[in-house]
């Protein structure tokens, strides 16, 4: 960014009178062309916001803020509410982080601090491949492996041991919040591992050596000197994982059961914002139904923008700290 400033005289302020005179040199033409293409990026973002806002106007006016607290999903009375979907989205993402954060951060610590560089790089490469596996393939695997496993072993076991809590009641279908959370965990930990590992590797060596020289064990040095230093980067990786989990569509749609209802039990079927859109948008017949789904998309969009923005800021903050 700053490195190119030394050789880039044309400034972005093209005043009208000098506009055509500036076109004379090939450089100005190149500048304008690239500027035009860069503006397309901005245009797409603005268009997305505009389209979501415009195409959901019917639903926004009809339901207003009541949309967020209503549990209705009634095609006959054309009454729609977002609460079951928001609940499902937040619950499955929370479950995903519950599994993925300890696993991911643990693995990142091992890869950054303990593993020999060659092994660390090879394993990180494999983990990054995990991140490239398409969502629908996770869904395919989950339907035919995870769901039967949950139905026949995990959920009966949970019910017999923890069945006294409201969290693990009701019939064990296999599909539901818990299965969706488990799939999301598998899909988010590659992000947590690779970004956290980078943050840990950026910690200056002195930080480690000072702790070890004071007599700390390897674990103490890692946990008390290295991890706190990389805390913001690790937080950032968790937020990135969260943003991915919130917006994840296909795999969740295939295992969550698709029932627009709020249930306390993790074993019961539910719905998320992304999966209700994926499942019902193509056959949304009435305008108000379609616009309610687009309204949901708007909510999801804003949610992920906020989480992503926070993640980027945290990651930027750590890189600054590491380089200073």
């Amino acid at each position: 960014m700053s490195s190119s400033a030394a050789v880039s005289p044309p400034s972005a302020t093209g005043a009208k009178p000098t506009f055509f005179s500036r076109l004379k040199g090939g450089d100005q033409v190149a500048y304008l062309i690239t500027l035009l293409f860069a503006s397309i990026v901005l245009l797409i973002a603005v268009l997305i916001v505009y389209v979501l806002w415009q195409e959901s106007s019917l639903a926004r006016h009809k339901f207003g803020f009541g949309f967020f607290t209503s549990q209705a999903w009634d095609h006959n009375e054309e009454n729609y509410g977002a609460l079951p979907f928001i609940y499902g989205t937040l619950l499955t993402s929370f479950l995903a982080l519950l599994f993925a954060v300890p696993l991911g951060v643990g693995a990142a610590i091992f890869l950054a601090e303990l593993a020999p560089p060659k092994i660390s790089n090879a394993l990180t490469f494999m983990v990054e491949l995990l991140a490239a596996v398409p969502s629908v393939i996770y869904g395919l695997l989950a339907i035919f492996t995870l769901v039967p496993l949950m139905r026949d072993y995990v959920e009966p076991a949970l019910k017999s041991t923890l069945g006294f809590t409201p969290l693990f009641t009701g019939p064990a279908y296999g599909v539901g919040y818990l299965a969706a959370g488990a799939v999301l965990a598998i899909m988010t930990f590659p992000f947590i591992i690779s970004v956290s590992r980078e943050a840990l590797l950026d910690v200056p060596r002195e930080q480690r050596e000072a702790a070890l020289a004071l007599g700390a064990t390897r674990w103490e040095a890692t946990w008390q000197a290295v991890v706190p230093f990389a805390k913001l980067g690790i937080m950032g990786s968790i937020f990135l994982g969260l943003a991915r989990a919130l917006g994840e569509t296909m795999a969740v749609t295939m295992v969550i059961g698709n029932v627009p209802k709020i249930s306390a039990s993790l074993l019961s079927s539910g719905y998320t914002i992304a999966s209700v859109i994926a499942n019902e948008f193509a056959e949304a017949s009435s305008d108000i139904f379609r616009e309610s789904l687009i309204f949901l998309a708007l909510v999801l969009f804003l949610l992920t923008i906020v989480i992503n923005g926070a993640a980027r800021l945290l990651i930027i903050a750590t890189t600054r700290k590491g380089s200073s």
């Binding site: 797409i44 997305i48 994840e248 992304a274 859109i277 999801l300 992920t304 992503n308 923005g309």
Partner: peptide
């Protein structure tokens, strides 16, 4: 960066 994080289903609606 924000566009990169937009859920794919939202892009579909767009």
């Amino acid at each position: 960066d924000l566009l990169n994080g937009v859920p794919s289903i939202v892009v579909g609606i767009f």
